[in-house]
Design a protein around this nucleic acid. Structure first.
Lengths: 345, 345
DNA sequence: TTCTCTACTGTGAACGCTCACAGAGCAGGG
DNA sequence: CCCTGCTCTGTGAGCGTTCACAGTAGAGAA
């Protein structure tokens, strides 16, 4: 009934495991065992300890625990893109909340780390290698990025979103099947009678950018199309680059009757450019996007696109990371995409 | 010239302060002093230690440090809004990068924590009170939110963005002068000949929402306007709510010749609604926003708005938080706003 | 009985760091 | 000469926890 002084508001020193042990009439070891699953603890001791914890208001000191276990029970979501991209691209939102949710099931908090500049990357890398998180969910596509390598070398469990650029890289990753998705879209455009199909690619220093272009080219070649000379320009997944890309394509290939854009956000930009040029979508020109983000449904007309299963991607990323933290070897997961037909194609 | 084995890829045990001491030929104490500012260390020792750190690839183990200092040398940026709002509202972007930059000067990493749901808030609050961050920059406006109180009771240094709702609250905060900003905007609308001025307010359970409305009413009253009956509706700062608000106002007060909207994002929505209704801006109706975010310059026509000095706000938040961590008492800072005239009014 | 096995418990020894303290060396003042 | 004060250095203790180990008691088997 009586509250021990340590549970009142203005306490000085937080109670330690030692205080709990004294209060419960057992040893530190027993308290620790209760805290960590309760194996080899008698029911009587179990109860006495739980009571004492309640009475003292004891909270485990995670720094002390981490010091010895080497674990921190938290996970970092590291984004090495410029900050604007993070806010502009709706995919990040979906990915982030997916990961947060997947981790919530394990009661692990997710720490978001934005490292857009070189300086930030240095600071955050040091923070991570100092053991402040048990593992990192890395979202970064560009090949010039050394962060993944650095973290891997430092022995930090890591799962990347999207295929890494280097071929022999031993890093875990989860990705959608970009090539296959691109093939589906281009086939759909061909099936609906389009013949002059242009493409705005993603950044070609990323596997996603390269693979979607490869899928596009494969299908066109299989269909017996001649060269795609003048039909391909590349962007950086931003809205603005989609707009600029479409303008360039319209100038280079005015007879284009379809346009495959490697992200919905770029496709939004492309739609704006097409609209300005007086082309009706899909009557004059069909437009296909990629991602199936909110940008696809918000676009006018709503975009036909390739759905990336972000819910499954984030779930798999978390699963792989926890497995890796548990000692398993890195692994790669490729998930299938799906064609979503709306109004633009 | 030779690299110690610990700096190669597959190291087992990370180097400790002890390894560095041995490598440098000094004691643990001296290494520790170098690590913590280098006071009372001879130049020769200083250099030897720095060399040894470089050679061994030593990174301080922050758990061990934290265990004894009680500090974690990191700061949390806590957002208790639903996640969509975070991505939609460009103000968060600006605020976040401002804080990151301000902290970079102190070499302190910023951890972003999104706690949109009750469950997330519980997890994150526990994480914070367990001492994982030294202080919290809190962005959350709603009054129903108990997070600020909880953290303050747990003794966590805290600075809020925006005035807290409760009157007697002892929590630090930094805010722009919302009332004064609103006054400036409404005066500007009056000065340019407008007479029937409507308003879309922010959420009225936030001081920002209340104060901007108060400023609006004061100026109208001073100008001798009759009741604003039917001229005021409220939104939640989202684009969609601005659109809906403008529609409602158009129905209630078709003779309105100006509209003051409590955020640029809502103003964007309002512009869309006005456009649909065939009203020309600013010819038929003037529109004034609030924030001066990118939404203001992206809007068509570009928004006349009230600039919130987000760069100074974030700098002040960081300054206040660091001061509070250093033992100073909480304080409040109110920063002036500025009228920015563009095309919409 | 005695021995073994199992369930449970307590005790040092870490983990890697900082902090307080003591002590060395040297200068300057009485 | 000693004393004081300064800069610099090393050492032991301890932060709060887990882990390995040793040791106890009681049950069952030999």
């Amino acid at each position: 009934m009586t509250m021990s002084s340590s549970s009142t508001g203005g306490r000085r020193r937080p109670p330690t495991i030692h205080d709990v042990a004294r209060e419960a009439g057992v040893s530190r070891g027993t308290v620790s065992r209760v805290l960590n699953g309760g194996h080899y603890v008698s029911p009587a001791a179990q109860e006495a300890v739980n009571d004492a914890i309640r009475r003292t208001g004891y909270v485990v000191n995670r720094h002390a625990r981490s010091l010895i276990t080497g674990r921190s029970d938290s996970i970092g979501f590291l984004l090495t893109e410029p900050q604007e991209r993070f806010f502009e691209d709706p995919n990040f939102n979906v990915l982030l909340s997916g990961c947060t949710q997947a981790l919530a099931g394990h009661d692990i908090p997710l720490l978001l780390m934005l490292a857009g500049t070189k300086d930030e990357r240095r600071r955050i890398t040091r923070y991570i290698t100092a053991g402040h998180v048990d593992g990192v969910l890395l979202v970064s596509s560009h090949s010039g990025d050394r962060v993944a390598e650095e973290l891997r070398e430092a022995g930090v469990p890591l799962v990347q979103c999207g295929k890494p650029m280097g071929p022999g890289s031993k890093v875990s990753y989860v990705a959608a099947d970009d090539r296959d998705g691109a093939r589906d879209m281009v086939r759909h455009l061909l099936d609906t009678g389009r013949r002059r199909i242009g493409m705005i690619t993603g950044p070609l220093d990323t596997p996603g950018g390269v693979d979607r272009l490869a899928g596009y080219r494969e299908v066109l070649t299989e269909a017996g199309a001649e060269s795609d000379e003048g039909l391909v320009v590349s962007g950086d997944y931003s809205r603005a680059s989609g707009e600029a890309g479409a303008e360039r394509l319209l100038a280079q290939a005015p007879d284009m009757d379809a346009l495959f854009v490697a992200s919905d956000l770029m496709a939004q930009g492309a739609l704006a450019a097409l609209h300005r040029a007086g082309r009706r979508v899909p009557d004059d020109i069909a437009v296909g996007g990629f991602d199936d983000s909110v940008a696809a449904t918000e676009a006018v007309p709503a975009l036909t696109t390739i759905r990336q299963p972000y819910d499954r991607i984030s779930a798999e990323m978390v699963r792989l990371l926890l497995a890796q933290i548990g000692g398993e070897d890195p692994a790669a997961v490729i998930l299938p995409t799906e064609l979503v037909v709306r109004d633009s194609a």
